[in-house]
Structures are given as C-alpha cells and as structure tokens.
Simulated assay, not measured.
Amino acid sequence: MSIWKTPLVLADINKFNENTICSLLGIEITEIGSDYLVATMPVDQRHHQPMGILHGGASVVLAETVGSVAATMANAPGYYAVGLDINANHIRGVSSGVVTARATAVHIGRSTQVWNIAITNEQGKAVCESRLTMSVLKSPNA
C-alpha cells in the first residue's frame, strides 16, 4: 500500500527543481516506490571540499531534497511541509562517481513527519545517514 497522498511523477518533480540548488548540484529524483523515494547526485569538483572529497553540506542538500519531496508527496492535498531539523552522520568519503539517497518514513503525522535518508556510493556502501524532521502546515489557499 502506498504512503503517498499527493502522488507526483518524476518528470514533474525534476522540472519543479530546475533553476534551484538541485540543478546546480545535479540532483535528480530517480525512483518512486510505494513507501520510499530515491534521488541521485554526481560527485565532481562542484561537490568537493578542499581535500577533494564530497562536502558534507552537499550530502545534506541531497538528503533534504529527497526528504522534502517525500514529505510533500506524503501530505494530503492542501498541506505542505517545511524543514524543522536535519542531522547527518558522514561515514565514508567519496571523490567521484554518483551517490544515491533513499528516503523512508519514520513517522508521518498530522503536524510533523520524520524521514530517514541513507546515502550510498556506487558500491552500495554507506556514505551518510541523515534524519530530517518536517513541519506540516496548511496551505493558505486551502
């Protein structure tokens, strides 16, 4: 059974993210499951910190992006979600390739949502584990 109350399609999500930090970093939503959402991000010089590895902030942008889109889809029509808190544990360095983020719900409530985001490298090894808490608000036009 799907958790999505406001289902979206990949093309629409990625179009909505054009001309944002997502396009700047190459973040793309790539898969919608019945209870998870997946996004990818390349790792190149745009994403590096001075030591030549993936900047932790870029991982957090990826995590917040996939978690925020998931939260939007899990909301009933007429509601939206904004970030309250995010944390990230950086586990493994990556200097090139593609990282993949998978968001799964920990809690989908009336006023808050909590999402777990696991970011892995191309070999499926953990790069970052993040937790995102969202506030659910009623749209002013609803």
Rank of each mutant, 00 (worst) to 15 (best):
N17I: 00
E31R: 10
M51S: 10
I117W: 03
G78M: 15
S34R: 11
V98E: 12
N121R: 11
S130Y: 09
S135Y: 13
P42D: 07
G124Q: 05
V106C: 04
T20Y: 06
P42M: 07
V127S: 06
A63V: 13
A103Y: 01
R46G: 02
G52I: 10
I29E: 00
S34H: 08
G52M: 15
N14C: 06
P77S: 14
A88N: 14
K125R: 14
I108C: 11
H107G: 04
E18N: 06
K125G: 09
G33R: 11
S139Q: 15
V9Q: 04
G78D: 13
M73Y: 02
V136I: 14
I53R: 03
S59P: 03
W115L: 04
G33Q: 07
E28A: 09
Q123E: 15
C128H: 09
G109Q: 10
G93Q: 13
E31M: 06
L84Q: 14
T40N: 10
G83C: 13
I86A: 15
L84I: 12
V66F: 11
K15N: 10
V66Q: 03
H90W: 10
R102L: 06
H107K: 09
V43D: 02
I27G: 02
E18W: 05
L137Q: 11
H55K: 05
M134K: 08
G109P: 05
